[in-house]
């Protein structure tokens, strides 16, 4: 119980600080006291509303993913670039050689945010769109046979898993709780 409260408080504090940083970046007035006061007020209000709406959990403040996700994004940007070229070639080639495929891959991620990250990464790389996420199955529509490369997509899934597993150790317990619900 105490641990739960501490985790909530920690998330609250981190969310408020992050919102304050976003406020400063958006506002750009670092020297106007009124605006800074309003910023603190706004950040606290937003964090409180997030708590009040009952969505202050690991998905809204993914503390644990933080360090790993940036490297993952770097890798993802390169992937996005590569697959964009393939799709662009298809668009500009006078005789399109499409062969759309529907494939299924398994999402082995434990947390919801991990699964969502995986599905979003699949969608972000053009040529593959995650059509459906049901349980542990992701249904993918791929533009050509080359793009419907299950092993490459599963490799991406393993990368997401690795990002996820560098995070907190108590995920296992959360998965058990979530499994029943």
């Amino acid at each position: 119980m105490v641990k739960f409260l501490i985790s909530i408080a920690g998330r609250f504090i981190v969310l408020s600080l992050a919102l304050m940083v976003i406020w400063l970046l958006l506002s750009g007035y670092f020297d106007k006291t009124t605006l800074l006061v309003f910023g603190v007020f706004s950040a606290l209000l937003c964090a409180w509303l997030t708590l009040h709406m009952g969505i202050l959990d690991d998905d809204s403040v993914p503390l644990s993913v933080m360090p790993g996700i940036f490297f993952y994004w770097l890798w993802l940007f390169i992937e996005i670039g590569k697959s964009n070229f393939i799709v662009a070639m298809q668009v500009w080639s006078p005789k399109m050689s499409l062969s759309p495929q529907m494939i299924r891959v398994k999402a082995h991620q434990i947390s919801d945010s991990g699964k969502a990250t995986y599905a979003n990464s699949i969608t972000l790389t053009p040529g593959t769109v995650s059509v459906d996420l049901l349980g542990e199955d992701i249904l993918i529509h791929a533009l050509t046979e080359d793009l419907a490369d299950v092993s490459a997509i599963e490799d991406m899934g393993r990368k997401v898993c690795r990002v996820e597993s560098t995070m907190h150790p108590n995920l296992k317990t959360k998965a058990k709780e979530g499994g029943g619900a």
Binding site: S42, L45, C46, L49, T50, S60, N120
Partner: peptide, 19 residues
């Protein structure tokens, strides 16, 4: 699930943008 996760993530920043 994807929609919900992203809404959870973006809820607070949108509120902050409003303010």
């Amino acid at each position: 699930l994807i929609l919900r996760v992203v809404i959870k993530l973006l809820f607070a920043p949108i509120l902050l943008f409003g303010l």
